[in-house]
Computed example of a mutant assay.
Amino acid sequence: MSISTLPVRTTFTNTAPCSLGFDQTVPRQLVHRAGVTEVFLTDGVQIQGESRSVRIAAQWPRHHALYQPDAQRFSDPMLLVETLRQAAIYTAHRFHGVPQHHRFIFCDLDFRIEEPALLRIGGAPLRVVFDGRFSPEDGRTDTRLAARFDAAVEVDGRRCGQGSVRLLAVGERLYTALRRRRNASFGAPVQPVPRTLLPASEVGQARPENVLLSRGTTPGTYAMHLDTSHPGYFEHACDHVPGMALIEAFRQAGHQLLRHSARSDTHVMTACAVSFDAFGELDAPVTIHADEGPKEARSGERLVRVSAAQGERTLARATSVYLPHRTAASR
């Protein structure tokens, strides 16, 4: 991925034998989901003698209201992102003693899909294993834990890619102090504003109700549509703009930008690195800015840089890599 400036993580393989189940989901409270149908993890074990090493099992559905396969039958890459999020939270709770009432703040996240063809939908749900390492940082207290979770990703027994996330788990009092320190307004949630949303086909979505963007006033600029009643983006009550919604908005912006610059080509996002800089408030509009980087001639990869802002404040920044579907299918 020569055009990419994404972080390169050191990956590893846990060789210790262990068995994982795929027959039922883990408790939803351990992954901070309100609905059982939104839980993708099915099991997890800590490697004996290695307190930081875990193997986490998950099952990806063939069809989901939010994470749907595209027209070429590739699984939504956001499934990998959401599973990475769940795996990090689950590991913190189950194996590192983080209380269930703690709040999780994600500082950065990145992933790479190295074998996109493994994400093609077949006749059964995909079995996924995260071969992970949870590394707490110094300075842990009863109310605060900072850590990084790195994982190699296997799909149906074959290496598919990797992901990493840095998180901060804090108690309620500390969380409230952090929110106030960031000048949180705690105003009334934004109500959906009537506007012409982009067509679902332009942003890599199958359903129009999942579109997050409308066209902005200048090329590469978009207004983010925040509907706090959406059952996917606001799966449970949230006092700020969800990080997963921001990442999806970034993905959609990249699809729309490339759809016009690449003309006949359609693309799939194969890598992304996101940094979260500030809490996004629900009572102020969010603007998405996207611009395209150089094309990698040999592989056809396209680089897109995206950011989200409220006024002069940057909420998050991302660098994403997209690959033409015809190339992804042959890898």
Rank of each mutant, 00 (worst) to 15 (best):
S261P: 05
P192Q: 06
L178A: 13
V286Y: 08
W60G: 00
S75H: 12
G280A: 04
A152Y: 09
F186S: 14
T83G: 08
G243R: 03
T196A: 10
G132K: 11
T287L: 02
D277Q: 08
S299C: 11
P116Y: 07
H225L: 02
K295R: 11
E248A: 04
Q86C: 04
I121P: 13
K295M: 03
H267V: 09
L178S: 10
T314I: 13
G254P: 09
P208H: 07
A245D: 15
P61V: 00
R207F: 10
V98M: 01
F95A: 03
R173H: 03
A16Q: 12
R33G: 01
D277R: 14
Q68Y: 11
V39Y: 00
A237T: 14
I105E: 05
T13G: 04
P192S: 09
M269K: 02
M269V: 01
T141S: 15
H230D: 04
V321S: 00
A124V: 06
R181Y: 09
L109T: 13
W60R: 01
K295S: 03
T15K: 14
P199T: 14
L197V: 09
P189A: 07
V306Q: 08
T327K: 10
L79W: 05
V39N: 00
V193M: 03
Q59H: 01
L174G: 09
L198D: 02
S19H: 08
S229E: 14
S75P: 07
V268H: 02
E50Q: 14
T266K: 13
A151F: 07
D239P: 12
Q59K: 11
L30C: 12
F149L: 04
A34Y: 06
T319I: 00
G49F: 07
G171M: 02
A87V: 01
I113F: 10
E172T: 15
G204V: 11
H236V: 00
F95Q: 11
H230F: 09
S164F: 04
A88M: 02
T13S: 11
G216Q: 02
P69N: 13
A65K: 11
L213G: 03
A65C: 09
F106A: 05
V203G: 04
P7Q: 00
P69H: 14
A253N: 08
A57V: 03
D227W: 06
L84D: 02
Q59P: 01
K295H: 02
G300W: 03
E202T: 15
S320Y: 03
H236D: 15
L168K: 14
R180S: 10
P27N: 01
L145G: 05
A65P: 05
V155H: 05
T176N: 05
S229M: 14
Q256C: 12
A200Y: 07
C238M: 15
S75Y: 09
T327R: 11
G132W: 08
D150R: 10
P136L: 00
Q72L: 12
L323A: 12
A206P: 09
G97P: 14
D108P: 10
V241R: 07
Q48W: 08
G300C: 07
A147S: 10
D43N: 01
R207M: 06
I247C: 12
G132D: 09
F279V: 13
R326N: 15
G97K: 12
A92K: 03
E281V: 12
R173D: 08
D70H: 08
F74Y: 12
S307M: 01
L126K: 11
W60Y: 01
F106C: 11
